[in-house]
């Protein structure tokens, strides 16, 4: 989905709030949010792609204003409701107030039927592909040309795996893009390496 989470290359953002040796957790509830989503994954309540997609489905206003671990707990709560472990009403009763959840899920899709293998050195073009569900294709490479550096391991196809439909493992590729091709005349010169699923690629 063309969601607010897909931030690569977006403009207008200021200085990174950087400090060395930064603490990973600031408050106890953040540790809980992190531990409990992991616990739900280990219990098979949902997988990592479902978890990521439920974060992406937060309303943009909520996503932008929430801290990282508030996004974690919102995804976790949304999936507990969607998987039938609790109702939203019960959650809100337990919490003693309203409980903002992520927006509804849309249909997933299977691996591309016409996907084909690539090898190191192949020129590839990323499909000009618009899909409303979970997709691990950052918009900044959509339709762009790159070079396959190497094949990397096969993983479950995210566009299916986040939607509870059969997700065959498929190869991924380390694809190198030039920033000059991604954002002509409007970027620092660099090579950007992206891990790209086979279903997202065409021969250039």
């Amino acid at each position: 989905m063309d969601g607010i989470h897909d931030l690569g290359g977006r403009q207008g953002f200021g200085t990174v709030r950087y400090g060395r040796d930064a603490a990973v957790f600031h408050e106890e509830w953040e540790r809980k949010a992190n531990a409990l989503y992991g616990l739900a994954v280990r219990h098979g309540v949902f997988n990592m792609d479902e978890y990521r997609h439920a974060i992406e489905r937060m309303s943009p206003r909520h996503y932008m204003s929430a801290s990282y671990y508030e996004r974690t707990l919102t995804s976790l709560a949304t999936l507990l409701v969607e998987k039938g472990l609790v109702t939203r009403e019960e959650l809100e009763k337990l919490a003693g107030g309203t409980f903002p959840l992520s927006g509804p899920i849309t249909p997933g899709r299977s691996n591309a039927a016409d996907r084909q293998p690539f090898k190191a050195g192949d020129k590839v073009r990323v499909r000009n592909d618009f899909f409303g569900g979970h997709i691990r294709l950052p918009a900044y490479i959509r339709g762009k040309q790159g070079i396959v550096v190497r094949e990397t391991p096969a993983y479950p196809f995210p566009d299916a795996h986040a939607h509870g439909i059969h997700a065959a493992d498929e190869p991924t590729y380390d694809v190198a893009f030039k920033t000059e091709d991604l954002w002509p005349n409007a970027s620092d010169s660099a090579t950007v390496h992206v891990g790209v699923f086979q279903s997202y690629l065409l021969t250039a």
Binding site: W29, K32, L36, M58, G96
Partner: peptide, 23 residues
């Protein structure tokens, strides 16, 4: 489903406690 910052919204602390209780 849309997020509204409302006065009756449960705090993150209350929300995580609710999740903990469900689990």
């Amino acid at each position: 489903q849309n997020h509204q910052m409302s006065a009756d919204q449960a705090s993150v602390l209350k929300r995580i406690e609710a999740i903990e209780s469900v689990m």
